[in-house]
Design a protein around this nucleic acid. Structure first.
Lengths: 222, 222
DNA sequence: GCGTGTGGTTTACTGTGTAATCTTATGGAT
DNA sequence: ATCCATAAGATTACACAGTAAACCACACGC
């Protein structure tokens, strides 16, 4: 090599640095472009060098999930459960749609690392000390997670983000296909521009619905 | 080739047959092993021959999603909305966890084919003719889909299925890690064997919670 | 000095999707 | 019957994936 850096400039490779670079790359270019070679060059290093710090690509993917989970806001034990769950759900949704590839990895069965455990423990703790029975705490946890995950999936599968893009998509969809067979869809698409549709509103609607439902559950110690 | 079949035995390759074989293979061996070559040999044909019926692998994946969506039970317009939505959610969950790879494809933005459109239209139709406003129908649709998708994700990411496997997992998890930091998780794992935990129960709990919540919405024409 | 380990590189192998090309069978029009 | 266009499938080849194995270079205690 002719263009050598002074070696002190090259900060040492670590698993930490690799994981952060991987998350970064996946955020910017998508998980599909996250390849060992590209990740290597991103870090100014050869692909195989990564394997000195990481067993294989799966370990990288798991580590990425842990990093992401670590970004989610965690409730205090003694916080008001409803507000705490709302904040956590909002935060989880925010984080997971910022790193929209993470859901796919979750599904693949990653994440039983310490960060994930701490995360789960904090949530359970809040619910339990709010007086939920163990069963009901588990139910609440489960249904909220379902909802957040599903929200993120639907969000990322939508071809639009803003309300304008949405009406635009609606318009173009209306034109092309043989829409005569789908009268209700047509009605909805035609209605869409009028109401200020947004995934945020959708999310809040369902979230409040679920939280209100959970509020009806009996508590152990009122 | 020495072992030629009488050519009449070899039924002709079609997109339909390819898609069915692909779904079958993904069900049996996982989406990861669905490769053009393997799919080819599964059909007794060379990999490249598939490209005479299909533009590329993505088209196969999209087609698979359509097939799966087609399996979901669709409500009649005039059916009682609550029962109809319950049945559809149950059916969707059933279908999607039978083909647990499908969620990942949904996320990738597949599915605006005719089957998916018909599916969406039927659901909207039921809600609208039950008296839901367009906004509320959209809300109901959205929250139910979120819930089902999330349920499937969580189910497939769990390392166990039956209640016995669950207590087993709980036990082994309790032993290995430094669980002192996670008292509430420990409490839950210890409680797990007593209560008959199952993902089915979890699903029903949240589903009824959401349906009851939706029932509180005002209807247009009572 | 001298092993010895640690962190990075080189090379190479297998498996992927698919472009480009070649082969063969089929079914009218003559 | 003959011819040949078209379609369905097979072959070959290429760029890129993950990673096993061997190799190198420098820091260190002795």
């Amino acid at each position: 090599m002719t263009d050598q850096e002074p070696p002190s400039r090259r900060l040492p490779l670590t698993k930490e640095r690799i994981l952060r670079a991987a998350v970064d790359l996946a955020d910017r270019q998508g998980l599909g472009t996250l390849t060992m070679r590209r990740l290597g060059t991103e870090l100014g290093v050869e692909a195989m060098s990564l394997y000195k710090h990481v067993a294989n690509k799966d370990e990288i993917l798991n580590g990425m999930v842990e990093l992401v989970i670590g970004e989610i806001e965690i409730p205090e034990d003694d916080a008001d459960w409803k507000e705490a769950m709302r904040r956590r759900a909002v935060s989880a949704r925010e984080v997971l749609s910022r790193h929209s590839w993470a859901i796919g990895l979750l599904e693949a069965g990653a994440s039983t690392g310490p960060t994930a455990l701490r995360y789960m423990d904090a949530i359970l703790g809040n619910l339990l000390s709010a007086g939920f029975s163990v069963e009901n705490a588990a139910h609440a946890f489960w249904v909220l997670d379902c909802y957040v995950y599903g929200q993120v999936i639907q969000e990322t599968s939508l071809p639009f983000t803003t309300s304008e893009e949405m009406t635009e998509t609606a318009a173009s969809t209306l034109e092309q296909a043989p829409m005569g067979e789908f009268p209700h869809l047509v009605a909805m698409y035609q209605h869409a521009p009028k109401s200020g549709y947004s995934v945020d509103t959708e999310f809040e609607f369902g979230l409040e619905l679920i939280l209100d439902g959970l509020e009806r559950l009996p508590l152990d110690s009122p």
